[in-house]
């Protein structure tokens, strides 16, 4: 992310952003980028509006232009009522929205978002998603990193799954689900410890079976049919949940369930 933002030199391979070489044209590239960093870099001594204005000044925009632009952007992220407030009393969601408003001040061709909604409450997340979606519809290119698979599913046309710094899969959310998972998943929970032969008994009911300590997952194309077969086999799970396969299934399948400590 920092290499694309032209603040760290490329560590290897070739990198070209907006057709330019970051090594040579860093400043020119950055002039066309909007960046929402993982940690907010807002200025606590300044007001909400001033934060946007001074950031615009870094791009060499005129003060007069910025005054209108700041109001416009703050309205866009629904912070217009807080324009003259300091940053300190703002909630995490408001700060995030302010960072997004600020990153748009130069009307960027490319917007880099590093975990834009991490730590936000559901309302704030949906508001951020809504605003990002509008930007996308207006034709902006968004590059975003996230740990939330629902976020990726909501916002991305094309996504890349990274594991330990390497690309392990690439495609649209739908393609990835089609390629690495089944259409549906049946989740079984048993009251008692599942007996040892459970997996052998359900074997053949699904394309892939994953036995976890608390539940058993059956990856299948027709969840209801699979659930019926289970009852026919005389198994009586405490609960049966049939759901659509998600990106989260793909991600866990590709990168494993063990904790990765960064």
């Amino acid at each position: 992310m920092r290499m694309i933002g032209c603040v760290s030199p490329p560590s290897g391979g070739t990198l070209s952003i907006l057709g330019l070489d970051p090594r040579r044209d860093g400043a020119t590239i950055r002039a066309h980028l909007g960046v929402v960093p993982q940690l907010d870099t807002l200025d606590f001594e300044l007001t909400v509006r001033e934060n946007v204005i001074i950031y615009g000044r870094y791009f060499g925009l005129s003060r007069k232009e910025l005054r209108c632009r700041a109001d416009e952007l703050l309205e866009f992220v629904q912070l217009d009522e807080r324009a003259d407030s300091k940053v300190e009393p703002l909630s995490g969601g408001m700060r995030r929205r302010l960072t997004i408003a600020r990153s748009l001040v130069n009307d960027p061709d490319l917007l880099l978002l590093d975990e834009p909604t991490t730590g936000l409450d559901p309302q704030a997340r949906h508001l951020v998603w809504d605003r990002l979606f509008r930007l996308k519809r207006r034709g902006a290119t968004l590059v975003l990193t996230t740990h939330y698979m629902d976020e990726a599913e909501q916002l991305c046309d094309r996504l890349v799954v990274m594991d330990k710094g390497r690309i392990v899969a690439e495609g649209s959310p739908r393609e990835l689900i089609g390629r690495y998972s089944t259409r549906e998943v049946v989740e079984l929970r048993f009251r008692d410890e599942p007996s040892l032969d459970l997996s052998t008994r359900v074997n053949g009911l699904a394309r892939r079976i994953e036995a976890l300590p608390d539940r058993t997952l059956l990856y299948t194309d027709d969840g209801d049919a699979t659930a019926d077969r289970i009852h026919e086999l005389g198994l009586h799970p405490q609960s049966v949940l049939v759901r659509r396969s998600t990106l989260e299934d793909v991600f866990l399948h590709l990168t494993g369930r063990t904790l990765v400590d960064e």
Partner: peptide, 14 residues
């Protein structure tokens, strides 16, 4: 703390 240098470095400023 404020990370304002990083805010600047995301703009054309080097």
């Amino acid at each position: 703390w404020t990370r304002s240098y990083y805010a600047m470095s995301a703009t054309p400023l080097g």
